[in-house]
Design a binder for these strands. Structure first.
Lengths: 153, 153
DNA sequence: GTTTCTATGTCAGGACTTTGACATAGCTGA
DNA sequence: TCAGCTATGTCAAAGTCCTGACATAGAAAC
């Protein structure tokens, strides 16, 4: 006599759950990006890092972590790799607080620009799969779900 | 004079890209599930494994891996953990091919049932954040995007 | 001024995931 | 029959990510 938890919504099996679909889509994206970036000798976390750094130069490691949705510990490892590869720079000491501003190097910008084409191609393929008039709504829904989840986390 | 790669769609910054939103939503879901499952001493991969096993008892490790969108190497590690914890059983040798059928134990079923409530609560919170009439379309769009990406991968 | 709070960076340990490689079992086609 | 092909399971190494813990710097509260 087991208690049945209230199902999230009418669904025949797990594959109709939102979580499952979300995971599937994210896994597919990750895989496609991984493959696309391999030719540019970059990993997905590294690319995400460079992209965010290009948009907001000089942000700290913690901000970078928040922007890529990982802990600052994880981001720190990636950052060190990029630093060793000469793609980003970081002062040894902070001049104000403890935050160390990170910047792209020229090489970092070049590598990012090259990789971006490959990543954009993946994104276009993904977008092409859905009716164009649904895109904005999809983006909004994803955003609402994310906010609902980590808002009260 | 840098070549600008064709942008996937009109977007002001990275946060308006589909990939970014997808990653954000997936990260939020992962975080919420992690937290919910911690009280049940299960990780997200472990829960996913148990859930799939409950729906398709006796499937092989490779099928399990495909169903949870990871490599069979990853799934193998998780499986061993579940086996050590006494939540699943696996014969030492296969009677037909090489595939080893995995089954939930009674304890595995109990733990799954307990954890399911917590996970369903997370999913309900996620669904509640979007207009209910959009849910079916959202599921379909996620599915189309995933298919488009790993279809030609 | 001192205490408390918050933010940042780092270390350590553990869990998950991936690529690459190898051996084995069954099937398929010449 | 026998050579390939596919699927499965496993090992090894590397990378990513997490929790927990600690020290430090600035801001806020008293």
């Amino acid at each position: 006599m087991e208690e049945k938890p209230a199902p999230p919504h009418a669904a025949g099996d797990v594959t109709e759950h939102v979580g499952y679909r979300l995971k599937r889509a994210a896994a597919a994206l990750r895989g496609a990006m991984d493959k696309a970036l391999r030719e540019h000798d970059l990993t997905v976390p590294q690319y995400a890092c460079l992209e965010l750094l290009d948009e907001r130069p000089g942000i700290s490691g913690s901000e970078l972590a928040r922007g890529t949705f990982v802990t600052r510990q994880s981001s720190s490892v990636v950052l060190r790799g990029l630093q060793d590869a000469g793609l980003v720079t970081r002062p040894a000491a902070a001049d104000h607080g403890r935050a160390l501003p990170v910047h792209l190097t020229g090489e970092g910008r070049r590598r990012l620009a090259a990789a971006r084409s490959a990543v954009y191609a993946v994104e276009r393929r993904m977008i092409a799969a859905i009716p164009s008039h649904r895109l904005a709504g999809l983006l909004a829904d994803l955003d609402r779900m994310a906010t609902a989840l980590d808002g009260q986390a």
